[in-house]
Design a protein around this nucleic acid. Structure first.
Lengths: 143, 143
DNA sequence: CCCAGATAAGTTGTGCACAACTTGATTGCC
DNA sequence: GGCAATCAAGTTGTGCACAACTTATCTGGG
């Protein structure tokens, strides 16, 4: 009964994969959600996104992001600055240390993918199906 | 970069699906992990499993389960009793109220599956791949 | 029989997630 | 220009997850 539920499979797989990340990210003193935030920042080093923009990409709200970003700032990886144009916004930018981390963590995705034991094709397929589930759900919620 | 990672897709899909469960489970005053515990108990109403056995099925430790079970007990859905044979163990059994809930929640899986927008075949395939990922990871960890 | 090591559950502390709320800034309608 | 509605970020409170530790019980080798 439990074993047949896709939802449990998804929940268990997500936690199992986080278990794979944990020791790897721990070498850099990061948690998985912190790593995700850095991925977004590395991707668009041009303009520093606001907390909301980060939340839009990761689907996390300020209740989660505010303390997380405070910890990343305390670790010297990001800086938070009030926008001059709109004082409500807070822009999140990388420090040199945060930027430098990108190179040192370049092999993380490959190491994790290897630990899943899936082929390239399976990973692509899995990615497609999961993304579709997520988008279907979010589309329904907006209506 | 972020969008391409299977791990993010898995993390996002898992949270999206929990979002689908939340309002449905909320009707019964349950959280998703609490619902999973009840699924295990409903499945084997013969013998009351111990905390460890529950943890083995759900891959959760006593640090997570102890307070969760205390809340389920406070809600009148389960009872925890020290095993007579081995006083270290605590057996988790259903109350009448906990058993009765099974009927009332019978349509939950169908309602959630519908919200994913996936076909039956896709759900089966997704389940297979996710289970395999989880087991591959856990097998590696044990070695 | 005894006690060292193992085992089961619980506790403590940290870090997400998320709901509900607060505070301060901005926008649009009049 | 004034102010109600909106919006961005942060705060508070609850409930997982999980590591590290504590306490109580059990087991097996000597």
């Amino acid at each position: 009964m439990l074993r047949r539920q896709v939802c449990f499979a998804l929940y268990a797989a997500s936690r199992a994969l986080t278990d794979v990340y944990r020791p790897i990210l721990d070498e850099h003193g990061l948690t998985y959600p912190q790593y995700l935030v850095l991925l977004v920042l590395w991707e668009r080093d041009d303009g520093a996104p606001t907390v909301s923009e980060l939340g839009g990409q990761l689907r996390l709200d300020s209740g989660t992001l505010s303390p997380l970003l405070k910890r990343l700032e305390a670790a010297g990886l990001v800086v938070r600055t009030r926008s001059a144009a709109d004082e409500r916004r807070v822009e999140v930018g990388l420090t040199d240390r945060g930027r430098a981390l990108r190179e040192r963590m370049g092999d993380v995705p490959r190491r994790v993918a290897a630990a899943t034991g899936l082929t390239e094709d399976e990973l692509v397929f899995l990615h497609g199906i999961l993304t579709r589930v997520t988008e279907t759900i979010h589309r329904q919620k907006e209506q």
